[in-house]
């Protein structure tokens, strides 16, 4: 049996209480506990105080804002997968959640937990990177927000300071009708991705008004294939144009070798998954 080092457990009922409870040298938030508890069992992290935010029910909401959708920090993966607002505006979320772990983990794991754990292969960081999400943060000095490129600093490292917590993420609606698609290769269903790709395509007057491609598993953080995106914008909205731009998807990528896959294998997956995701997104955009 594996046991973490002893810690103190506090369970605030409100956000204000949570911020106060975090005022401690070595406090950690526990949300779903699906990444933190395994790490504590292995004694990879040894917090002295756990601040359990699970009773702060206001963090569970998904709501429409003027410009998009706001997903509360405590939204479970399983709830995101069947939320009607997300299904209407960002169907890619349900598609991606099908790749996150398995049923029991999806019932506990949360959006903000996943963002704060910041695994470079995880689905939520990739979705938020693809969808230009804004991560909303509360600290003792009040609210602030961070873009994905500011928030994700390195594998398992984010811009979150001591005494701060993520309250949610805001996803702005695309500027017009769009198509989105998600593709992933993992060793077994539910494993972390070897490589994952998310695409968003907007077509106006038969040309690409906007193309986005997000990639996970190929760098320290999720990344956008900006060279490919730039080259395609304004081109004729055709599958051939997408195909021709694929080599740009791996420009500047330098994935690492690790236990799960070699860098070469990861690089070879990128154009395959990018192609599938972009072509499906194009079909959906023009349906």
């Amino acid at each position: 049996m594996m046991k973490p080092v002893a810690f103190e457990y506090v369970r605030p009922e409100t956000l204000a209480e949570a911020v106060t409870a975090l005022d401690h040298d070595d406090a950690r938030i526990i949300a779903g506990g699906q990444s933190l508890l395994p790490m504590m069992n292995f004694r990879l992290v040894q917090p002295e105080r756990l601040v359990d935010i699970n009773r702060i029910t206001e963090l569970e909401r998904i709501e429409r804002t003027k410009t998009g959708l706001r997903i509360g920090a405590l939204t479970r993966h399983a709830n995101a997968a069947r939320d009607p607002l997300l299904a209407e505006h960002f169907p890619i979320v349900a598609e991606a959640m099908g790749h996150v772990a398995h049923v029991a983990i999806r019932n506990r794991g949360t959006v903000a937990g996943s963002l704060c754990h910041a695994d470079p292969s995880a689905e939520w960081p990739l979705l938020v990177t693809l969808l230009d999400g804004e991560i909303e943060i509360l600290g003792s000095d009040g609210h602030r927000s961070a873009e994905p490129s500011e928030f994700f600093l390195a594998p398992l490292v984010t811009d979150i300071e001591e005494q701060e917590l993520v309250t949610g993420v805001h996803l702005p609606l695309p500027a017009g009708p769009s198509g989105m698609a998600f593709e992933e290769v993992a060793q077994r269903a539910g494993d972390f991705a070897v490589v994952a790709a998310g695409a968003m395509v907007r077509v106006e007057n038969d040309t690409f008004a906007e193309v986005r491609l997000g990639l996970g598993g190929v760098f320290d953080t999720s990344v956008r294939a900006r060279a490919l995106e730039g080259a395609l914008t304004g081109q004729r909205a055709r599958a051939e144009e997408l195909e021709a731009a694929l080599p740009l998807a791996i420009e500047d990528l330098e994935p690492n070798d690790d236990l799960h896959a070699s860098a070469d294998y990861r690089l070879s997956l990128v154009p395959v998954l990018a192609r599938r995701a972009l072509i499906r997104a194009l079909h959906r955009a023009t349906q």
Partner: peptide, 16 residues
């Protein structure tokens, strides 16, 4: 089951 949904009880604190 926790409130009717399957969870891994090894990853839920008893206090929760």
């Amino acid at each position: 089951l926790l409130d009717g949904r399957p969870v891994c009880s090894c990853l839920v604190l008893a206090a929760e």
